[in-house]
């Protein structure tokens, strides 16, 4: 999944998942592979999951290409599952009410606020977080552009901004600065790094 997010013309190095940040991911991956459900059709998923879930139960999320199982109540948001259960703390909790965009992740390729969806609802879907963007040590072009253009100050909103930026470019909504500002408006930056964020997103859009 992560390699699909790179623009088509970027160097196609295979995803060597050997970076320092991925020890946990790897450990999870080995376990996850063993438990990974085969790709299910919607009908199969219905049969598999059409039952009431109550209290702490086991669920499987496919995050950054790896199936991960966790134990959680149905009320646990996707955001909390990523951060608290899977130790993927790159995705940030800002407002927890869908007003700031810090929790933005991609689900089946679309950007969403992970604070306003339940983990249990996202089984069988492809979830991509900020940790899934880089290919090993090679930064995703959007990450590199944020560094180059200084698209942040404190950095708290940055993972959400980058995830939203990746989607914004993929959607074709970053053709002009005005369009970029409008389609990035779901991500707030209290430090006010907006001009540099727009510059970063526009640069990647220009190369895409």
């Amino acid at each position: 999944m992560s390699q699909d997010l790179f623009p088509a013309d970027s160097a196609a190095t295979p995803p060597e998942d050997g970076s320092r940040r991925s020890f946990i991911k790897q450990a999870g991956g080995i376990l996850g592979l063993a438990l990974a459900p085969p790709l299910l059709s919607q009908a199969e998923r219905l049969t598999a999951f059409s039952k009431t879930v109550e209290g702490v139960t086991s669920m499987t999320l496919k995050v950054n290409g790896t199936a991960r199982t966790l134990q959680a109540e149905p009320r646990v948001s996707l955001l909390d599952a990523l951060r608290e259960n899977l130790d993927l703390t790159g995705t940030k909790k800002g407002c927890d009410h869908g007003q700031c965009g810090a929790c933005t992740v991609l689900v089946d390729g679309k950007r969403i606020n992970s604070c306003l969806t339940l983990a249990v609802m996202n089984q069988g879907k492809e979830i991509t977080t900020i940790e899934g963007l880089a290919k090993g040590e090679e930064l995703h072009p959007m990450q590199a552009a944020f560094l180059k253009h200084d698209g942040f100050q404190c950095g708290y909103c940055t993972p959400g901004q980058i995830m939203s930026g990746v989607a914004c470019v993929q959607e074709g909504h970053a053709k002009t600065d005005d369009q970029t500002r409008e389609w990035m408006s779901g991500n707030l930056c209290r430090c006010g790094a907006y001009p540099n964020i727009v510059a970063a997103v526009r640069e990647v859009a220009g190369k895409a």
Binding site: T47, S50, K51, T52, V53, E54, P74
Partner: peptide
């Protein structure tokens, strides 16, 4: 948020 049970419905009738 209060705790709740979760049921994915396969049909409108359900």
């Amino acid at each position: 948020m209060n705790n709740f049970s979760y049921t994915p419905a396969a049909t409108a009738k359900e």
